[in-house]
Design a protein around this nucleic acid. Structure first.
Lengths: 144, 144
DNA sequence: GTAATTGCAAAAATTTTGCAGCATT
DNA sequence: AATGCTGCAAAATTTTTGCAATTAC
């Protein structure tokens, strides 16, 4: 992982990071592309992808996989938990600190060298599961 | 999520589940397709995808997102942790019980109704990170 | 008999890449 | 000046879908 070289400052990169940082939710590359276009109308989606990848590799931002659909991006790279609404796809932060992983124990039992971890909770957000809606419990899914 | 109707038994479905259950690793749909073809040479990849989706929706199996590349499937649906090798892509189980999520607290603080959760640790497996290899720490990535 | 399931092929969705020109250091 | 970055368009990858025929219950 190339983490040594300085990151070159370009208008595109700056705008992408700015827009990601000001995003309420954890946007997809495409959603970010749309907002960046408001600032730099000629930006390309490939540039957005390339920069998000580069920034994630550098540890400046974080890439999230909700388990369905496209990847999400998070301006906050330090470990914290996320919750994903299986109905509307929204991803939000969860308070209460980072997921607990006993790094030395896991490294010993698996033989892996641990680099990081990601905890994502699946659920149904207040807007989607109002009041007494019927929902089923179990590993996520919308229909067969 | 349709969880009521009985699951119809077809040779394809049986073979897919059998192969997934006998798989050491946590295979991708495509890997599973290859092994199922040894048994049912005329099976289609679409059928593999459709069945994996259906079985995951029913809670019979579990769909995993390693954060990069294609989805993985796990014959064991009960909650347990996984570790993903960022170099070779392998996914393995981690002993030590399910990830800790204080469901009532999280439901109260987020307003979500929790359905499940997934913890995936990123690291470098013994085969990939032998001895004194140099690896960088931080949110995963191979090159820019 | 009815409804679910299958194979095939085509499509959709997401992400990556080749390349020539431009911008940043 | 050198290297990295960009836009564009094309491609690669992964997953889904339409449909007619078949199969399970």
């Amino acid at each position: 992982m190339a983490a040594g070289e300085p990151i070159r400052r370009t208008p595109q990169r700056t705008a992408i990071l700015e827009q990601l940082r000001s995003a309420r939710a954890h946007p997809t590359a495409d959603q970010l592309y749309e907002t960046v276009r408001d600032i730099l109308p000629r930006v390309s989606l490939a540039t957005v992808y390339r920069n998000l990848q580069l920034l994630a590799n550098r540890g400046v931002i974080r890439k999230l996989c909700p388990g369905e659909g496209p990847m999400r991006f998070d301006a906050e790279p330090s470990p914290h938990r996320h919750i994903y609404c299986v109905r509307c796809g929204r991803v939000e932060d969860v308070d209460g600190g980072p997921p607990q992983v006993a790094q030395p124990e896991v490294e010993k039992s698996t033989g892996y060298r641990i680099l990081g971890c990601e905890l994502i909770i699946h659920g149904c957000c207040p807007d989607c599961c109002t009041g007494t809606d019927t929902i089923s419990v179990g590993p996520v899914g919308e229909s067969d």
